[in-house]
Nucleic acid binder design. Structure first.
Length: 303
DNA sequence: AGGTCGGCCTGGCAGC
DNA sequence: TGCTGCCAGGCCGACC
């Protein structure tokens, strides 16, 4: 499923192909894709516009168009963007024809999405785009502001499992199920650990694990478990380098013990319970140095 | 108000 | 073999 590394891979491949071209034709075949707009509405808004830049924020692919118009595309679970496909790919939801650039031919694009969870939202103006994104997304993991302090700040007081917090896009943008498992393994943290219980050293390890897992995913041009494809239909290779994800029963690369599959936050979760020891109690109080500002303890309700 | 769960959606596959 | 039904999960809204 496209997470930050997969969307970034698409962006890097697609940007040099589409930037500077005009959307000559667009057909939105799935009425759910542009909601709340109707296909005809989004088609007429996009037709004839020049694509200035292709960006990314979290798992959103951002088509920045002339006239300060922005298309925030989300691939959700099974979306792909294919360039110059042979014929009509299966499950095509959007077709585009991009105009010529100096000395080059036109470019055909197909947005495919078997499960039809993907969306394309239209935003008029940079302010509207920023508002839209910031309401949904926390810091970018590669932003210099993503420090162990930030991590502990957004986790402070939380009793939900650390994995649930990593998957919460409003706290940290771009991490999904694959990279959460990989990052927690790298940091030697059990996914069920209460998010607010991390020590400074553990928060530092988690920050490094998140960045290392995402960078490894980008370097391998994403993970193709089933549906994710590059814009030329080629698969990514990160699925061959998973440390724990989808490796239930296989030996841990560090200790050799069998990796287990459990369910955390309703998601299939892979863990080495030797390297990532399971927490003893549900809630663990953070150590005193974990409470910057000395936030007073919340009074207990009378029984 | 934090935390959990169901719905969206369809291909793939286990089980009968 | 062919059918049924369950599972996968990012995100959002409903509910406790």
């Amino acid at each position: 499923m496209p997470e930050l590394p997969e969307v970034e891979t698409i962006r890097r491949q697609l940007a040099p192909l589409v930037e500077g071209r005009r959307i000559e034709q667009i057909e939105v075949l799935d009425p759910r894709w542009p909601r709340p707009l109707a296909p005809a509405e989004i088609e007429s808004a996009l037709r004839g516009r020049r694509i200035e830049t292709l960006g990314r924020r979290g798992k959103y692919l951002l088509w920045n168009l002339e006239g300060d118009l922005h298309l925030a595309q989300h691939l959700r679970m099974t979306g792909s963007v294919l360039a110059q496909p042979d014929g009509e790919p299966a499950h095509t939801r959007v077709r585009m024809l991009l105009g010529r650039r100096a000395g080059e031919g036109k470019v055909r694009l197909a947005i495919t999405d078997p499960r039809r969870f993907g969306t394309g939202e239209l935003l008029l103006g940079t302010d509207a785009l920023t508002l839209f994104l910031d309401a949904r997304l926390g810091l970018e993991p590669f932003d210099e502001g993503f420090t162990w302090e930030y991590l502990r700040l957004v986790m402070r007081g939380r009793t939900a499992p650390i994995k649930a917090m990593l998957l919460d896009q409003r706290r940290l943008a771009g991490v999904g199920n694959i990279y959460a498992d990989e990052a927690l393994f790298m940091a030697r943290l059990h996914p069920l650990r209460a998010a607010g219980s991390l020590t400074r050293a553990q928060a530092e390890a988690l920050r490094e694990g998140v960045i290392a897992a995402l960078q490894a995913g980008i370097d391998a041009r994403g993970a193709s478990i089933d549906d994710f494809r590059h814009i030329d239909g080629v698969r990514g290779s990160f699925q061959d380098r998973f440390l724990v994800h989808l490796r239930a029963g296989e030996p841990c690369v560090r200790c050799g013990r069998a990796i287990r599959k459990i369910v955390v936050a309703g998601r299939g979760t892979y863990v080495c319970e030797h390297c990532q020891p399971r927490p003893r109690r549900r809630v663990r109080q953070p150590p005193p140095e974990a409470r910057p500002g000395g936030r007073p303890a919340r009074p207990r309700a009378a029984p």
